[in-house]
Design a binder for these strands. Sequence first.
DNA 1: ATGAAAGCGCTAACAG
DNA 2: CTGTTAGCGCTTTCAT
Lengths: 334, 334
Amino acid sequence: MSATIKDIAEYLNISPGTVSRALNGKGRIGESTRRKVYEVAEKLKYVPNEIARSLKMKKTSTIGVIIPDATNIFYSIMLKSIDKSLLKKGYNILFCDSDENIERETEYFELLKGKNVDGMIIVTSGENSIYKDEETLSNIVFVDNIPAIDRDFSYVTIDNMKAAYDLTQLVIDNGHKDIAVVCADLSETTGYDRLEGFKKCIKDNGIEYNPDKIYKGSFRYQTGYEAAGKILKGKKYPTTIFAQNNVQAYGVVKRLSESSINIPDDISIVCFDAIDQTGMMSPKLTSVMQPVEEIGERAVKCILDNIDNDDTELEVSRNILGYKINLGKSLKRI
Amino acid sequence: MSATIKDIAEYLNISPGTVSRALNGKGRIGESTRRKVYEVAEKLKYVPNEIARSLKMKKTSTIGVIIPDATNIFYSIMLKSIDKSLLKKGYNILFCDSDENIERETEYFELLKGKNVDGMIIVTSGENSIYKDEETLSNIVFVDNIPAIDRDFSYVTIDNMKAAYDLTQLVIDNGHKDIAVVCADLSETTGYDRLEGFKKCIKDNGIEYNPDKIYKGSFRYQTGYEAAGKILKGKKYPTTIFAQNNVQAYGVVKRLSESSINIPDDISIVCFDAIDQTGMMSPKLTSVMQPVEEIGERAVKCILDNIDNDDTELEVSRNILGYKINLGKSLKRI
DNA sequence: ATGAAAGCGCTAACAG
DNA sequence: CTGTTAGCGCTTTCAT
């Protein structure tokens, strides 16, 4: 075990309190003792025990982060952005990958509470009664996919409905009328909102809504892959497939290419968040791009503001950021 | 603040010790009190304070993980694998992205010590005196890129020299003699070993080693991109570029494609860890594939074994796993 | 400027 | 079976 404040105190024949003050530079402290304390601390390789400090201070300088899938580049960029922003302020991440599993998310949530994190940044995964009954959501900020519950909470997201509307409009402007949608579970607000935006847009453009063209599943690769499979079984292909996230889109592309369907010549594809850091993905997907790094930064700002503001009115912070549409090469003008 | 053991105790007019035992099911405890304690705990929404418990038990059930870049799919898969394995055993990850920066890594390392993690899984980033002078490395397992220090420590990695040798042999077997290498800093053992493997292989094949064909930098995209740029300035192109990791390779591909160099018709590319979960990367890179998930699992096993074995001989655990070579489509037979 | 003492919430002897 | 006590390492009044 490493040296403690008490060890330093005994070594110098002074009291632990004095050592603590010397180390933290708080309260009146003699310059000479202060120096001595530092010397001995060095000598004894003293490392402050943050656990003890946390217990006393009721502050862990740790933020819990729950994301659905660290291997999805969208979330890994977000994670990195959060980490970077937090480090600047002296905080750390207690990392949780829920694997898009609500049970696992719940488990992690309880765990994070027990570990007394100062706050949480959560990307939820679907239908959850968890957050409905929580006493307070005041030190939580929800990000991207926010919970569909009827109460106030802080969040950072984009206007998914509008983004889906815009994307759909782009598709229609390119001459498409027959559009299939790969859709997540509607308990996910992003899934719901993106579908609503789509519906509203086609309606505004006089295109009839056909539920048969909505392929529901999750936000996973498999959902996109299987949806494309079903689409290919139909007699007439849609001219565009709208995937609600990046991973679904990859699944669609995979399935289509297995059947030698050319994108976008045979079928166009549009989606959300088709980030390509490698520059090697082909074709370049036409996609709504959320400002993912900024989302991470804002979430951190949001949570830390809340912590700093202490017990002053716990007001929720609602952040709706802008987005862009990356034109890519997967939408054909017809 | 949430309810404590003391609150439950007072509520029931029993002692905190009894409540603790009831909750933990340790020691003799009456079935009736036990039930009552549970009821009241529920009623008061008791959440055990893990910080206090940690302080007492000298155990945080938290493992520090330092990786160079969460947005590199190789590391994000590893991270997820570690998280999954740890959760099963009731541990959590304190996550640190060093951004391939040794100062940041050092900072995180100190921080993790202070936070009393029970162990660490570290992918180091280059030259570091940090680990040389540590009193003990016994609760650390190094992964992938292990530190180049002359002392014992636990690790999980592959035989990088042999893997590079095999990859080079494959290149040579395909008729190539003029091979350029995109190389990380040699203070990184993976960089060093992979270069050594390359050198040994060409030597064994009677090909002369030409230092001018080694393009040194870091493991970053930029290094690959710039190396390719320099290569294209030469009068005669190598027939193959060997990149030491995936990200470098992406940079190479990017730069080559900007100059409309066809891969592999004009220049072949081989590398390490060209993982493609999307299935959309083109061309498919010929690449050594480390068993990244298994590396994560093994690292977890390694660290937990060490923790469980307590103070019995702290023996280091050396794990060298197997690898595969993914043939891909970026190596041309000439 | 420093010491003494209490206490954060929990667990683990040791009594009874 | 349960109460009491001490203490994990630290900070922070309150004295001196």
